[in-house]
């Protein structure tokens, strides 16, 4: 089997160490990094995504594949940057102030990374100002916010308002999520989008970059 097919197959099976090893082999064999990415890793990740949608596999299987993808990306990222190949988009993400729950946010971050986005994870209990300063410093394209309870949701509005004040609005897309958050709430506070789960978050963030989407 060809090397890139083996990368794709092992990624689908969540064998992260093998994927990393095969990626190193591919780099050594002078296969261009963008080809390793598009014809090996992304082919594998797309199949994983399809199987997940069809309920042939479930979230833990996707997370194993994402771990393998992230491991391989550690090797490819510096090479892609060196060749001037643009990253897919940069997302600053965090759980809002006073919210100490971060599993949902972590899942979204991992799946976005797995889809090729660069993700800056600010952790949990993140004040509104921190989202804005990080987005500026990192030249982020997207701010993602998560909340577990309705009582912490108001921070989301604060971030949207601050983004307007700081001239980021329109330049940086804002997406919100978490158990008590809804599409209506996102609209009400002026966020660009809401997603109900990780897979939907990836699709939504991808839709922010139409020209860039694979």
């Amino acid at each position: 089997m060809e090397l890139l097919d083996r990368i794709s197959e092992n990624l689908q099976n969540g064998f992260d160490e093998t994927v990393v090893q095969l990626t190193e082999d591919a780099v050594e064999k002078q296969i261009p990094p963008e080809e390793i990415l598009s014809d090996g890793l992304i082919v594998g990740m797309n199949i994983v995504g399809e199987k997940f949608k069809n309920h042939d596999i479930f979230l833990p299987d996707v997370l194993l594949a994402a771990r393998a993808m992230n491991g391989a990306m550690e090797i490819l990222k510096p090479l892609l940057i060196k060749e001037g190949i643009p990253v897919r988009g940069k997302v600053v993400i965090g759980s809002v102030k006073d919210d100490l729950h971060d599993i949902g946010k972590n899942l979204v971050a991992i799946l976005l990374k797995g889809a090729g986005f660069e993700v800056i994870d600010l952790g949990n209990d993140v004040p509104a100002e921190k989202f804005i300063s990080a987005a500026k410093e990192e030249n982020a394209h997207v701010i993602g916010m998560s909340a577990l309870l309705t009582t912490t949701m108001p921070v989301m509005k604060k971030v949207v308002d601050l983004a307007k004040d700081e001239g980021l609005f329109g330049k940086v897309k804002i997406i919100v999520g978490g158990a008590p958050v809804s599409k209506e709430y996102a609209l009400e506070i002026g966020a660009d989008a809401y997603s109900y789960d990780g897979a939907n978050a990836v699709e939504t963030v991808e839709s922010f970059f139409p020209a860039n989407s694979r």
């Binding site: 979230l59 833990p60 997370l63 194993l64 994402a66 599993i103 899942l107």
Partner: peptide, 16 residues
């Protein structure tokens, strides 16, 4: 432990 698993990249185990 869940946080530790996520931090170590064991996302699937952390989620479960």
């Amino acid at each position: 432990k869940v946080t530790e698993l996520f931090d170590n990249g064991d996302y699937a185990s952390g989620y479960m």
